[in-house]
Design a protein around this nucleic acid. Sequence first.
DNA 1: ATAGGGTTAG
Length: 777
Amino acid sequence: MRFRQLQSAISCPFRARKLSSSSINVQIKQCNNRNLSKPVRKKSIKKQKAEHRVNSNSDIVKCNIAITKYMRNGQFDAALQLFNSMARKTSVTWNTMISGYLSNDQFELAKKVFDKMPQRDLVSWNVMISGYIKNKNLGAAKMLFDQMPERDVVSWNAILSGYAQNGYVDEARRIFYEMPVRNEISWNGILAAYVQNGRLEEANRLFESKGSWPVVSWNCLMGGYLKKRRYVEARRVFDTMPVRDKVSWNTMISCYAQNGEMQAARKLFDESPVRDVFTWTAMVSGYVQNGMLDEARRVFDKMPEKNAVSWNAMIAGYVQCKRVDLARELFEAMPCRNISSWNTMITCYAQNGDVSRARSLFDRMPHRDCISWAAIIGGYAQNGDSEEALCMFVEMKRDGERMNRSSFTCVLSTCADIASLELGKQIHGRVVKARFESGCYVGNALLAMYCKCGCIEEAYDVFKEIEEKDLISWNTMINGYARHGFGFEALQLFEAMERAGIRPDDVTMVGVLSACSHTGLIDTGTAYFDSMTQDYGIIANSKHYTCMIDLLGRAGRLDDAQKLMKDMPFEADAATWGALLGASRMHGNAALGEKAAEMIFALEPWNAGMYVLLSNLYASSGRWPDVGKMRLKMRDTGVKKVPGYSWVEVQNKIHTFSVGDSTHPESHRIYAFLEELDLRMKHEGYVSSTKLVLHDVEEEEKEHMLRYHSEKLAVAFAILNIPTGRPIRVIKNLRVCEDCHTAIKYISKIVGRLIIVRDSNRFHHFGGGVCTCGDYW
DNA sequence: ATAGGGTTAG
């Protein structure tokens, strides 16, 4: 039998970095016989030296054991060296390498060995199948399973578990009944399939259908109840099980700890015959989850042995109660940081407003995962740096990061905040691919994203697809409709929610009341407001009152609105006065409007938006001196007008505009188009409200008013660049200006397009010359 | 004596 050198060596980046260049060339030698290959006769002296003296079968076994040991210690480079030096190998040798690489998370290396292996046996196939499953590639595992020459019960068990782990319960069950031989592990496999996918009733039925289960299965069932927070049933299992091992005790202790029953947990902890790092960690995280940080720390300090999970639990506890200093101290003292530790600290800094520290950790950490990305992106977004958040998105995509449920949720909510619809859609695509769509956790995030990005119909499509809608799903959709001005749809949905037997909460009712107000359903709104305490036990808060004042004000019942404000059980806040101001403006009651504005200034002197509203109110009734006074007051109180800007997304790029902006590369085209639109609008009867008032305005202000506002620029740019037939979505950071609102109505009719504007308060859908807000916002 | 499938904590 002859040895033949492989054309390519197994490459290992880790080795290449750590070892000298001469050892990089170690190559895997392939043997052509089945199991034991005989030594080579002709070989260079140099090579003979490098080889291990492997003659007898027992020598091979010794080497195999040594390889196993190396692999268990994570020294897979040393294992490879030994492997390469063996003149004779058995299939066990090869299998040990494959399995060893897999347990060291070196999937690619494992696959390479598998591919080069001269003669695979059953174990090789089985190991590789479970490797693919571990690597989240069920398709490839299934292919191997179908390809392999013969299968044994281990193969069947492996594929069964693969289906179960990927949520295919029905497939797993089919496999279970199809397999020719079943053993204890197969039975546990199907039990685990039910438990892992939350189908506890089926798990329980299966469990009772058969006597005598091994302790692993008892633990599995108990763990299922723990995951579903059904602690009483978990305890019942614990009490009935014939034999208990360490896992059983640990699971039960975790049950108590997670349920906040720390005394019971403590009692079991003391009774437990064996304690390991799991037991101790369960106690620490139990105390942490129940806010007993000092007790957690006492247990933590007493632990005989800590792993990364224990440290992370303690650090997370400090983060939770915003003890950034203590969290950092532990993080720095921690000997065994893992990705989780870094992620926890990044989140900690990001949530406490220190994004630059978060970023520096992010850049320094050795490996990043999807949580790291979500944390840093969320950090930028929450701290108002949406541009950097977006940049990081692009970076992440380039990095090919794999996403899980929580990172999807986090990233989607960032998309929603910055209204990055294109990115949101791309992430939606990935959500579908990852089969997370029907879960309400990710589903709700998707739903909110579409609502906030101005896509109410797409939002409803997502809503329909959520299998188990929860309160959040309903609230998001109802409030989404209300904010978009679709009051009728919101109310219909509310009725559907009641029929579905979901109990509304205060957030639901804010949506319902504002929907009534948008639709002009005064009596319905009043009835809901009056009955919600009795029907659902919801006490009206200031948001509910604000809705009601808006509702009455819109209908011109300013006296009733004022009366309701007086009857409020608490002081009116700025938002409530704002509703009254809006109503006064609409119905031309300058005196009341002025009073409301005064109140708002007193409550929120920094509120620049109110300055604009009040100036407009004065201007509309020709009170120019008061407009001037207003400006002076602004200057005196040092209130800076937040600069208004609008943005629009075109082909995955966000274009931002400010008033009179001429920095955009397409500036000339935009202005020319706006001039053209101006003529056509005037022809349709549009009169610029700014030009009406010009005679009595200071020169500086005059100029400002003559310049195009940011929302007009964004709309014009979008019409020029977004293909006909597609809606235009513009976001503005402040409330949309009155003149622009009128203009956009005309524009929507002239160009025949749907224009959706999200301002700081709500959505406006402009189409055919009207807006869904009914000109009241 | 060495390799493969099932349970627990963040």
